[in-house]
């Protein structure tokens, strides 16, 4: 316990090396802070993907990006998950089901809307008759991640933004409702939707 960086990172920790004295063995902290510390380091997410972003979610959980190191483990049932990542397009037919899944999750629960389709309908918002333009019409969303699809790095960026929010969560407090929009570099150039030009990307001159 003495050299465990996790314990030193405990909220309210004096960051002193714990010794054998009684007062050195005891951390004084608020219950909420202690719970938040646990929650933010073990955000179990629901293994739920509808469309293209689902592949990026899978690859984010894969060996290279490895969401496990953030304490994020996929769970197959909403009953065991804290976080729902809406990865992909939600159609009118699907939306009711998404709400049903969301309602099965236990509080505190968080929702990350991953990709343009879940945010606002994305490329399908203009001409599609069956796509719901934004899942936030059905369930409250905490974090929006732009991109079509967002890179795993953008997803991880969103997860860090969510961890901030989890840290601020108070059991008896008022739930934050203002959504957070991740403004990652991906939003600027990650989505080259509809560009379709014939220009060659510039090569760095050696």
């Amino acid at each position: 316990m003495t050299d465990d960086p996790m314990m030193n990172a405990l909220p309210g920790s004096t960051k002193q090396k714990a010794g054998n004295q009684l007062d050195e063995q005891i951390h004084l902290t608020a219950v909420d802070e202690f719970l938040a510390w646990g929650k933010e380091n073990s955000l179990f997410y629901l293994l739920f993907a509808t469309a293209c972003c689902g592949i990026e979610l899978m690859q984010a959980g894969g060996p290279r990006y490895d969401l496990d190191r953030l304490g994020m483990i996929p769970r197959a049932t909403p009953r065991q998950s804290d976080l729902m990542i809406i990865a992909g397009t939600i159609t009118h037919k699907m939306a009711e089901r998404v709400r049903l899944i969301y309602q099965q999750m236990t509080e505190p629960r968080w929702v990350v809307s991953m990709g343009s389709c879940a945010n606002s309908g994305g490329p399908f918002s203009k001409w599609s008759y069956s796509v719901l333009n934004g899942i936030d019409k059905y369930i409250p969303v905490d974090i929006y991640i732009p991109g079509c699809p967002p890179r795993p790095e953008a997803l991880i960026d969103g997860v860090y933004a969510l961890r901030e929010r989890v840290r601020r969560y108070r059991t008896l407090g008022v739930r934050e409702t203002v959504p957070h929009i991740v403004a990652s570099a991906d939003a600027a150039f990650g989505c080259h939707f509809g560009k379709g030009g014939s220009k060659q990307p510039e090569e760095p001159k050696a």
């Binding site: 159609t91 699907m94 599609s128 069956s130 796509v131």
Partner: peptide
């Protein structure tokens, strides 16, 4: 559940 009307688009 994922009919995005791509043919109409």
């Amino acid at each position: 559940y994922l009919h995005r009307s791509i043919e109409k688009i």
